[in-house]
């Protein structure tokens, strides 16, 4: 029973990954924006690092400060439009083809969601690598890097709900694309560019609830100082809560769509 589910989800996930990596536009599009931000902003605001608020973060350069945020951004971008693929296949009838085979209906959804862990982790890994090439460091070495990828992957999988829920409810790619823009400010309000100490009070409050900030603040010490288990623990809790809420909603919307 449970074995059947894993078997189905496994092969459907492989298919999803294939679909993702066979179209270079997919991963180029995801990497591009964070890379440009990393490159341009680190030059443009080079001296911003002199401001007192940055010191406490432990980053030696603005590039080093920027990198964790852009890694998180990448995981964010990797799933920002992830719900449209399932929509396309709902519309063109491929989902019906799968539904007419003797599989669990939910395997189809899991086969779309689970691979987002790999996609987000690999994309985030790409930016991590590029930022190291540009001069950032990873204090905690390979194990720390692996931890960064796992955190990014988990975050991507959880955050994907922000795309799946509108996709499954509106059945419209345009609506899905537009609604995903609603979530962009959440990324920009995070601590990706500026430490909380330099933010106005209301933004600090926002960030004590912002899941992306939790992710960034768990990644940052791994790169610039060392293991901060409290930050990692908080990030994992934030991701778990986010994932639970968003993915329950996704499951509900999926069942509603395929009823």
């Amino acid at each position: 029973m449970i074995g059947d589910f894993f078997y189905e989800a496994w092969y459907l996930s492989l298919r999803t990954l294939r679909r993702f990596f066979r179209v270079p536009a997919n991963w180029i599009g995801i990497i591009f924006f964070p890379l440009i931000q990393l490159f341009v902003f680190s030059q443009l605001f080079k001296d911003i690092i002199q401001l007192p608020g940055f010191r406490s973060s432990g980053s030696g350069s603005y590039l080093a400060y920027l990198a964790p945020g852009q890694i998180a951004f990448t995981a964010f971008f990797a799933v920002a439009w992830s719900g449209s693929a399932i929509l396309v296949e709902y519309r063109n009838g491929y989902m019906d083809k799968l539904r007419a085979t003797p599989i669990f209906r939910v395997s189809i959804l899991v086969g779309e969601l689970a691979p987002l862990f790999i996609e987000s982790a690999i994309m985030a890994g790409g930016i991590l690598l590029l930022s190291v090439l540009l001069g950032a460091t990873i204090k905690t070495g390979l194990i720390g890097a692996a931890l960064i990828l796992v955190l990014s992957g988990l975050f991507g999988m959880a955050w994907a709900g922000t795309s799946f829920v509108p996709a499954l409810l509106t059945k419209s790619e345009q609506a899905t694309g537009t609604l995903s823009l609603v979530f962009f400010p959440i990324a920009f309000m995070s601590t990706a560019f500026v430490p909380p100490a330099l933010m106005p009070g209301w933004l600090q409050t926002v960030n004590s609830w912002n899941p992306i900030t939790f992710l960034i603040e768990a990644i940052r010490p791994l790169m610039v100082s060392g293991y901060d288990w409290a930050a990692i623990g908080k990030a994992l809790i934030a991701i778990a809560v986010l994932g639970l809420v968003l993915q329950s909603a996704t499951l509900w919307a999926f069942r509603r769509l395929t009823a």
């Binding site: 189905e8 459907l12 298919r15 179209v23 009838g93 491929y94 019906d96 083809k97 799968l98 003797p102």
Partner: peptide, 23 residues
């Protein structure tokens, strides 16, 4: 079905094999 439904990003062989596996 009336309109052929295939995974455009999978090869011919992969298309058949996936449905076979689901069965």
């Amino acid at each position: 079905m009336q309109t052929p439904t295939l995974d455009a990003f999978a090869t011919g062989r992969e298309n058949i094999e996936l449905i076979g596996r689901m069965h």
